[in-house]
Computed example of a mutant assay.
Amino acid sequence: YFAVVPVGDPGVATGAKTALSFIPNIAMALCVDAMAVLESNGVGVTAATLNDVVHNYTVWIAFRAWIIMFFFLGLLALYLDNVLPKEYGISQPFYFFLTKKYWCGESHQNNRDGHQRLLEEEDDQELNGDNRDFEAVGRNIRELEKTGECLKVRNLRKVYGNGKEAVKKVSLTMYNSQIFALLGHNGAGKTTTLSILTGMYPPTAGEASVFGLNMFGEIDEVRKILGVCPQFDILLDLLTPKEHLELFCMFKGVPKDKVQEEINKTLIDVDLESKRNSYSKTLSGGQKRKLSVGIAMIGGSKIVLLDEPTSGMDLTARRKIWDMLKNNKQGRILILTTHFMDEAD
């Protein structure tokens, strides 16, 4: 109010009012004042009167200021959303929009070089199968590393602000067409590890690559081939299983002529065919978990992260999910967390 009153004085120059119009409240006050005068004169606001000068101001000046500020504030919001630290997601450096990588992407050669560097930095004892802490890997499996058909994690570490170390220098290699289980008790860091790999939490240190992509530097590209089943079901109460799967088919770019085929196959795989048209809020806890697993698998996800996927299921349903994962592991890297030794086996 105190800023608008002096600016609204008829004696203030047009240039000053125009400059101050980039403050949206002031532009609104000056615009309403000009519109009121035009209405009282009986001409109103029309295309012909937008440029009529009222108290050294026009309605068109306000409109132009709003249009400019709309785009400026929109870009500023996008910029701040990328660079400001937040609870979830990895923040970009403040100069990210000035980098070649942002506009052109990272070359495949750089991807291969980064992946090869991770491979070369492995411990010689692990490579030779001499380290008693690691199971020796066959030559045919090792070949997958050379072609990038694996997920490699090296020295992954996560320390929270309170000093708690949730993940301590984890190094793993998970191969294409195999299922990898993270077995551990509550608080062991399983969920935190998966959250880092999905880009929800930034790592304190460490590197990871999958199919030749840098998982921390190219998370947007990684998400195009990523499927996630979180620890807690994130479902929309008024959508059916069929509608959930259809929605995620759209997100993952499944061709329209293949959507129904994918949905039907997934519903059968997770044993929800009879509930395809029921609202998700009516599903039991185990059925919701099945739907979350189906969402992670649909769309040909090449890397699938499942956080305790069978929690809340009875033994029969758990075994069906295990069989489904085994039958659909070809061409995928499947990673699941669990408390149960039999499930890991």
Rank of each mutant, 00 (worst) to 15 (best):
Q231I: 00
C229M: 09
S280P: 10
E308Q: 06
S301F: 07
L283R: 07
D233C: 07
K256I: 00
V304C: 12
D220I: 04
F232W: 05
S278N: 14
S292C: 12
G227Y: 11
L267F: 07
G285L: 01
S278A: 11
S280R: 11
F251Y: 15
R289W: 05
V254P: 01
I225C: 07
D307V: 04
K302M: 03
L245S: 04
E207Q: 09
T240I: 02
D257Q: 13
K288N: 11
I234R: 11
K256P: 00
R223F: 00
V293T: 08
L272K: 14
L245T: 06
S280L: 09
F211C: 00
L213Y: 14
A296E: 13
L247F: 14
Q287V: 02
L235P: 13
V304E: 09
G217R: 12
A296Q: 07
K258Q: 11
Q231W: 01
V304K: 12
C249H: 08
M297F: 03
G294Y: 09
V259W: 05
G217D: 10
R276T: 08
I219F: 00
V259H: 08
K290M: 12
I225M: 13
E207H: 03
Q231S: 01
K256V: 01
L213I: 10
E273L: 10
L306F: 06
L272G: 13
L306M: 08
M215K: 07
S280N: 11
Y279W: 14
N277K: 11
G253N: 05
E262I: 00
V270K: 14
G286Q: 15
Q287Y: 09
L226D: 12
G286P: 14
S274N: 10
E246S: 07
I303K: 13
G212H: 06
F232T: 15
A205W: 02
N214H: 04
L306Q: 05
M250L: 12
S278V: 13
K252V: 01
D257F: 04
I219E: 02
T282P: 05
K288C: 13
P241M: 11
I225S: 07
D220N: 04
K224T: 12
L226H: 11
G299P: 07
R289L: 05
L245K: 06
L213S: 05
T266K: 02
P230G: 06
D233P: 10
A205C: 03
P241H: 14
I268A: 12
E243I: 01
D269L: 04
S209W: 01
G217K: 10
E243G: 03
K224A: 14
V254Q: 03
K242Q: 05
G294A: 08
D220Y: 00
L267W: 06
G212Q: 06
E246L: 02
L247M: 15
L213H: 14
M250T: 08
P241L: 09
L247D: 03
E218T: 02
N264M: 05
V304G: 12
K256W: 00
I225E: 05
E262F: 00
K242L: 00
S284H: 13
G212W: 03
K290R: 15
S278G: 04
E308M: 09
G253R: 06
E243C: 05
L291F: 14
F211A: 00
D257K: 15
S278R: 14
D233E: 15
S280W: 11
I268H: 12
L306C: 04
S280Y: 09
K265Y: 01
E207A: 02
L235S: 11
C249Y: 07
E243K: 07
E246G: 06
K290Y: 14
C249I: 06
